[in-house]
Nucleic acid binder design. Structure first.
Length: 512
RNA sequence: GGCCGGGUGGCGAAGUGGUCUAACGCUGAGGUCUGCAAAACCUUUACACGUGGGUUCGAAUCCCACCCCGGCCUCCA
């Protein structure tokens, strides 16, 4: 049995590397600091809950790294450059399209959706990255990067722009386990004229007609805009170095975007290395049989869940019930089940809080964790771990074992569920263990209450005052033993989506 | 057409060679409480590993075939 102390704990961390498709022991380049780059959103629309799942995954990754005692430098990019909806230089630019629809400038659109995205992450208790990297802030660096690619002889020019020749880099497509022969370019979209290989892609897109687009820059290849894949290579190398530890993204990126990014990295540096030690990809949130997708329309936003009465953290809990590498099947019933389970968990924690003593200094420290990086994380862990019993260590070992196994959060939740129901721990020690679990799961175990999980639905017919008024009336009716009247009110409230909870100290209620 | 992945009780979802007569949560059932309920708590149910072969002392876990389903090869987490 391993002894847990601050810093790297007992079980060696293993992560699943998409490059090679196998579980590997995690070893950082720098023994103290881990550098992580996560592909962020294109800000032409709101994020849907499937998009958000990806960041719950990166947040989990980050918390686990911090749990293991590392400082984490985490970069997320914001793609605010318009990219064509079609690879064939036809169709509209997504950003431009969104702007003309909203009758705003493209910059306003980008700012609006960037803010909305960050707010969503905040509501989900996702730690801010060390740095947000905005594509439009790096155009000149992209041009310089593209020039280097050109100098290194891995590109060729066409009327439509500058392209990367994927046969000029080593082993193109290995991340995707790509089968070059069997590919059907043009199966879904017409190909670009003049491309030498089906997998070649644009580094720079030249505008057909200069000055037509809102976002356009001069370049050695004519006025235009950078290719979509360019920004990630440029910004990750700029902020994390030519070789860094972890790159994350959705599984869809594993096939094209990241293969292209690798090709760019290789072409830029003139070697065969992908530039990243661990490529990690999260699976999709699905609904019924289909993946959730913006282009299909009718997607669910976090706000949609809130309007339906679900606290954002219910979605976080729901996301943690599945492995990040498995598809997760969303349904309202499943979300409701998560809300119920999460609520009961919090109620059990609340009982432990009543029984135990919780030094107030820790509440403040735990709060700080959200806004700071690894070092204070280590500090807090040291405080909480100081002198815990062997029983407590056993529970922490279980946590450590689960998260060390490629971030097995369902296992962590299972342990947590058993933990709060067991009686072998002193109350204050129980709280410390719970606080340590919460450093990883980020569910506000010690700060949230079950009542907060159900919100007033947007379409609720009654106001809180209405409800309170009716409850008062009901209480009086019960006192008068006018049960017919009392039950009528109860039925009415139930109809309106209100759950009544009678207790020894009076009547509480919540939205359903 | 090619490549990748998946099919576990009513639902979500772990588990990838023996501790699986399969974790955990939700649901269902009974009970406590209650004027009756609800909520909460306690107890409990369901003999679930897509199908057919094979390997092995032993398979949900490995191999083969088949049947379904999804993703990717346009932008997408």
């Amino acid at each position: 049995m391993s002894h847990i102390s601050t810093g790297v704990t007992g079980h060696p961390l293993k992560v699943y590397n998409s490059l090679g498709r196998k579980l590997e022991a995690f070893t950082p380049i720098d023994p103290k600091v881990v550098r992580v780059y996560s592909c962020g959103p294109t800000v032409y629309n709101y994020a849907h809950i499937g998009n958000l799942r990806a960041y719950i995954f990166t947040d989990t990754l980050r918390r686990v790294l911090q749990w293991k005692g590392y400082d984490v430098v985490h970069v997320i990019n914001i793609t605010d450059v318009g990219h064509l909806t079609s690879d064939a230089d036809e169709g509209d630019d997504k950003m431009e399209l969104a702007a003309s629809k909203a009758k705003q400038t493209i910059w306003e659109v980008a700012a609006h959706y960037t803010d909305a995205f960050k707010a969503d992450l905040n509501h989900l208790n996702i730690q801010d990255p060390t740095l947000w990297a905005k594509a439009t802030d790096h155009i000149q660096e992209m041009i310089a990067f593209a020039s280097t690619l050109e100098e290194n002889g891995v590109t060729y020019g066409l009327d439509s722009g500058l392209y990367l020749d994927t046969t000029k880099v080593a082993d193109y497509g290995r991340l995707a386990l790509m089968d070059h022969e069997g590919m059907m370019e043009g199966a879904r979209v017409t190909s670009v004229e003049g491309k030498r290989n089906p997998t070649d892609f644009a580094i720079w897109r030249t505008s057909e007609e200069a000055g037509k687009r809102q976002m356009e820059w001069q370049s050695p290849w004519g006025a235009g805009a950078p290719g979509w894949h360019l920004e990630c290579s440029v910004m990750s190398i700029k902020y994390l170095g030519r070789k860094f530890d972890i790159h994350t993204g959705g599984v869809d990126h594993r096939q094209v975007h990241h293969c292209n990014e690798i090709a760019q990295n290789q072409g830029y540096r003139g070697d065969e290395d992908s530039g990243v030690n661990y490529w990690m990809h999260n699976e999709f949130l699905v609904s019924g049989q289909d993946k959730m997708s913006k282009s299909k329309g009718g997607f669910l936003r976090l706000q949609t869940l809130v309007d339906a009465g679900f606290h954002p953290l219910v979605y976080r809990y729901f996301a943690l019930t599945a492995d990040y590498r498995s598809t997760l099947d969303f349904s309202w019933d499943a979300l409701k089940a998560a809300q119920t389970g999460y609520g009961r968990l919090l109620m059990r924690v609340a009982r432990h809080k009543e029984a135990g003593q919780w030094p107030t200094k820790w509440s403040g420290l735990l709060d700080d964790i959200r806004y700071s990086r690894g070092s204070s994380y280590t500090f807090i862990m040291g405080q909480l771990l100081d002198g815990v019993s062997e029983t407590a260590q056993g529970w922490l070992d279980r946590l450590d074992e689960a998260l060390s196994n490629d971030l097995n959060m369902p296992m962590v939740l299972a342990a947590l569920s058993e933990l709060v129901q067991q009686e072998g721990l002193e109350p204050d020690e129980m709280l410390r263990v719970l606080a340590l679990y919460d450093l990883v799961v980020g569910l506000g175990l010690l700060s949230m209450t079950a009542e907060e999980l159900t919100l007033r639905p947007a379409e609720a017919g009654l106001s809180d005052d209405d409800v309170n008024g009716l409850l008062q009336e009901r209480t009086q009716a019960r006192k008068d033993r006018d049960f017919a009247r009392a039950d009528a009110i109860r039925d009415q409230l139930q109809e309106a989506g209100v759950v009544i909870k009678d207790g020894p100290e009076g009547t509480a209620w919540s939205w359903k």
